[in-house]
């Protein structure tokens, strides 16, 4: 209060109405909490509290025979970092990420550029149809593709019948990861396409005119005008896709019923954490795995963001 009075007297030369408005603004600014508070309260309960609780759990271990729990410090973490099951799962999602994310984002980028190019017949129709899979619940997408993949009925069996082979086995150990990648790609190309397309729409028309006057052709314009305009959107889409890949759970977990011998209980880190908790009752170790994955994800997302913004300078 004293501060705002001093502030006022220092600016007495200014018209009264301006000072009055500033004072009113200052007292109103505190009221921002009325609007932000409810969100933050639920956020604290559903985000911050579980994170805190997970950290607490990860520092303890249940005693198998005596009952009760003991403080073990970072023992759970050293165990996790030396756990071959964890690293196998991690390696799998990392391989998935390195292959699937670029394919998906490049397809989305090409689709967005094509739709934005004005060279396409019925571009509005393409935009909405390619986006459509996003409206399909992930669970339904996996069930649908799972049946299509199956050799019982579905298209894989039809194709094998047609060519008289048994070569197409999407649910075999060798093909499972690409099969999952196909489902995820099918689901999310349209969503990413829309993010890119929305960013392209905000490019001012004068930039295109300038490029045209400079004699830039289609591909030159894409490189010099469109891609720079897309940089922010690409960084965001990459971060979301990385987080999504590390979280991989729904697809393998549902396909597990169709291929129980191919998909292990520790196929992805998330499935490992889930099965440790709900099949093994190892809540402390499960929380540790979750935190390790969270930290790795956050670090990688941060690095991508840093690199993305540095390149834009």
């Amino acid at each position: 209060m004293a501060e705002s009075m001093a502030h006022q007297s220092a600016e007495q030369v200014r018209p009264v109405s301006a000072a009055g408005r500033r004072r009113r603004r200052a007292s109103q600014d505190g009221k921002g909490w009325i609007f932000v508070g409810p969100f933050l309260a639920v956020f604290a309960l559903t985000f911050l509290a579980p994170i805190g609780y997970a950290i607490y759990l990860s520092l303890y271990r249940n005693q198998a025979f005596f009952g009760g729990k003991v403080f073990v410090g970072i023992d759970n973490y050293t165990e996790a970092l030396q756990d071959p099951k964890f690293w196998e799962a991690f390696g799998r999602v990392a391989a998935f990420l390195v292959v699937q994310v670029p394919i998906m984002l490049i397809l989305a980028l090409l689709a967005a550029l094509a739709i934005d190019s004005a060279r396409l017949h019925a571009s509005g129709f393409f935009r909405i149809v390619i986006f459509l899979p996003y409206a399909v619940p992930g669970v339904v997408a996996v069930l649908m593709w799972g049946y299509i993949y199956g050799d019982n009925f579905g298209l894989a069996a039809n194709l094998n019948d047609l060519f008289g082979t048994t070569a197409i086995q999407p649910l075999s150990a060798h093909w499972m990861l690409p099969s999952i990648a196909n489902i995820v790609t099918w689901e999310f190309v349209g969503y990413n396409m829309l993010i890119f397309y929305s960013a392209l729409r905000t490019v001012p028309g004068e930039l295109y005119e300038a490029a045209a006057i400079d004699g830039a052709g289609t591909f030159r314009t894409i490189r010099a005008v469109k891609l720079p305009a897309l940089r922010g959107a690409i960084v965001i889409a990459t971060i979301f896709s990385i987080i999504g890949s590390f979280q991989l759970f729904n697809e393998p977990n549902i396909l597990r019923t169709l291929a129980p011998n191919v998909i292990t209980t520790y196929y992805t880190p998330n499935m490992y954490a889930y099965n440790l908790s709900f099949a093994g009752q190892q809540f402390n170790y499960s929380a540790t795995i979750a935190i390790v994955m969270g930290v790795i994800t956050a670090i990688i997302a941060y690095v991508v963001q840093l690199r993305g913004s540095r390149e834009s300078l």
Binding site: N270, Y274, A290, I291, M293, G294, Y302
Partner: peptide, 13 residues
């Protein structure tokens, strides 16, 4: 918080 995987929170939640 957004960078923390949502499913990582599921077990503690």
């Amino acid at each position: 918080a957004v960078a923390v995987p949502g499913t990582a929170l599921a077990v503690p939640t």
